[in-house]
Every structure is written in C-alpha cells, then in structure tokens.
C-alpha cells in the first residue's frame, strides 16, 4: 500500500510561510535598507533564506510511504518488524514551523547528536496524508 504526499498541506504551509515572511521582509524594506555593503548583503541573505524556507516544503511533493507485510519503507529507509508495535510514533511541536510527525524503530534516541542527525534513524512523515492512521488501519485492525 502506498501513501502519498498531502499536496494541500504542502501548499498551505508554503503559502503561510510566504505571507509571514513577505510581511517581515516588507517591514525591513519599508524601514529602509542600509546603504552600506553589509546592509545590502544582509537584506539579500534574508531574501534568499526566506525563499529557501518558503520553497522547502515543495521538496516533499513526491514522497511515498510504503506499507507491506512485515516492513515499511520511506525514501531510502526501510524498517522490518515481526510486530507492528515495534514501530513507535512521535509528534514534535516545533513552534512556529508546525508539528513534525516521525516514526522510528526500537528505543527513542534522545542524545543531542542523535536529535541533530535524527533523519538517519527516523522517518519524517510530516507531509504525508494520514500516515499514522493508515498504518493503524493496515497493521492493527484500525477503524
């Protein structure tokens, strides 16, 4: 079974980011960009950062989460299991960026290095369409 990206959510998140950052950057621009080289570089860097931040959710558009008997796969990661309860789910509130949904196998890794490099251990399923619900439906007699 394949679960695809939630395109509506991705577009809404990008739009919200665009509106918030457009207001912020317009505020900087309206208050006058410093004529010095540093001021211009700072403004250009801010615009570049804002564009990357706004467009970054779009890279999730083609993500697919695969559920198969005894295994799940996402991007290049694959978790195999004999009992679906081995797969743990967690929601992380990342304040103004929104809530991240991720799943992992085994014990949750909470060390600072593991948190920074969490994408090596976990599947970040934030932008998919109801992945946790579909997981329960598929493996755990969900209704």
């Amino acid at each position: 079974m394949e679960i695809h990206a939630n395109k509506g959510k991705i577009i809404v998140v990008s739009l919200i980011r665009f509106i918030v950052l457009a207001v912020f950057l317009f505020g900087i621009y309206a208050s006058g960009v410093d004529d010095s080289v540093f001021g211009k570089v700072f403004f250009c860097a801010s615009v570049t950062f804002a564009l990357l931040f706004i467009l970054s959710p779009l890279r999730h558009l083609n993500e697919v989460f695969i559920l198969a008997p005894g295994k799940i796969a996402f991007k290049k990661k694959e978790f195999t299991f004999s009992d679906p309860a081995e797969i743990k789910w967690a929601r992380y509130k990342t304040y103004f960026i929104g809530t991240r949904l991720r799943c992992y196998k085994g014990k949750e890794k909470t060390g600072w290095k593991e948190v920074i490099f969490s994408s090596f251990y976990e599947m970040d399923l934030t932008y998919l369409k109801n992945p946790h619900e579909e997981f329960i439906n598929y493996y755990m007699n969900g209704k």
């Binding site: 329960i136 969900g142 209704k143």
Partner: peptide, 13 residues
C-alpha cells in the same frame, strides 16, 4: 493495547 491516531482506533496483541 490500543493504538490511536486521529479518529482511527486499532489494537495490538
């Protein structure tokens, strides 16, 4: 053991 996500409720062994 129950597993709950949104409105979906599943169960385990």
């Amino acid at each position: 053991p129950l597993h709950i996500a949104g409105k979906v409720i599943g169960y385990d062994k």
